[in-house]
Design a protein around this nucleic acid. Structure first.
Lengths: 138, 138
DNA sequence: TGTAAGGTCTGTAGGGACTACAGGATCAAG
DNA sequence: CTTGATCCTGTAGTCCCTACAGACCTTACA
């Protein structure tokens, strides 16, 4: 099989399909150096190895957990170098958890406020709405 | 008092100070037509009337309640035209409340996941971290 | 009256995290 | 051999601001 591409190498479209990642996002991650420059076919098409595929999965899972790109960069560089400890990873996770918790409490406050002003409103046909009064007030 | 600017007209900087809004944001809101083009001094400096000041307050309060720019545009156009009912405003608020509630529940799910994987981790000096295992897994 | 500091003007770039498109090359199937 | 899908590159757009540069205007004080 001359010039046959190894079975475990896939092109961008296939990687997108397998990972559920948007096609363009893969190239974007390469641009910001989150993903490495992959191998290429002779004609220039990208070829992703199993390792590349694992790395993208790592990134996508981290994003699902709400880590920012910079946080993922940290996670990856720790894991890449192999020089990480449980403690470091745990710290990063706790930091992130704290910001998630903060966001939740902010949104809950918002929710309470919205419920309150919403309850004041009869939702009828009258043109004087207490919600508007709240927004308009001096 | 020839050419004296009315006391209730203020320039951009003063409006920013009074409202707590960022100076540039005011111009931005003008650009996206959330704020009207204000009067100008002869030399071209913006002059905001009381009405303008109220409108900006309305916008800022709506933003504090998490309404998007488009939602604020809707609120404003209803209030501007005077042709709104309690019911319409209430509906918009409920819609927004729903999206806030959704965000909270999404974040809570995230929080639970992060707590779980974080708890599995001893946070010690070991190089094998269960959090990383989670991210790395096939 | 001169001048220096500070406010305002315009247009434009940057951020974060993508997403989408145009215009061309390449590939796979019939 | 042709068609249609996929791939390439570069670039622009999204959302909601924020910040800067370089010029002009205003105000306070000497």
């Amino acid at each position: 099989m001359p010039f046959t591409v190894a079975r475990d190498h896939v092109k961008r479209g296939e990687l997108a399909r397998r990972s559920g990642c948007n096609l363009e996002t893969i190239r974007y991650y390469e641009g910001i150096k989150l993903m490495p420059e992959p191998a290429r076919t002779e004609s220039g098409h990208r070829l992703y190895s199993i390792v590349d595929q694992r790395r993208l999965r790592f990134i996508l899972r981290s994003r699902e957990l709400g880590f920012s790109i910079d946080e993922i960069r940290s996670l990856l560089s720790m894991v890449d170098s192999g020089a990480y400890t449980c403690g470091e990873i745990h710290a990063l996770t706790q930091e992130h958890l704290k910001s998630v918790t903060k966001k939740i409490s902010d949104l809950k406050k918002l929710q309470r406020t919205l419920k309150t002003i919403s309850n004041d409103c009869g939702a009828g046909d009258e043109p004087d709405c207490p919600i508007v009064e709240t927004l308009i007030a001096d």
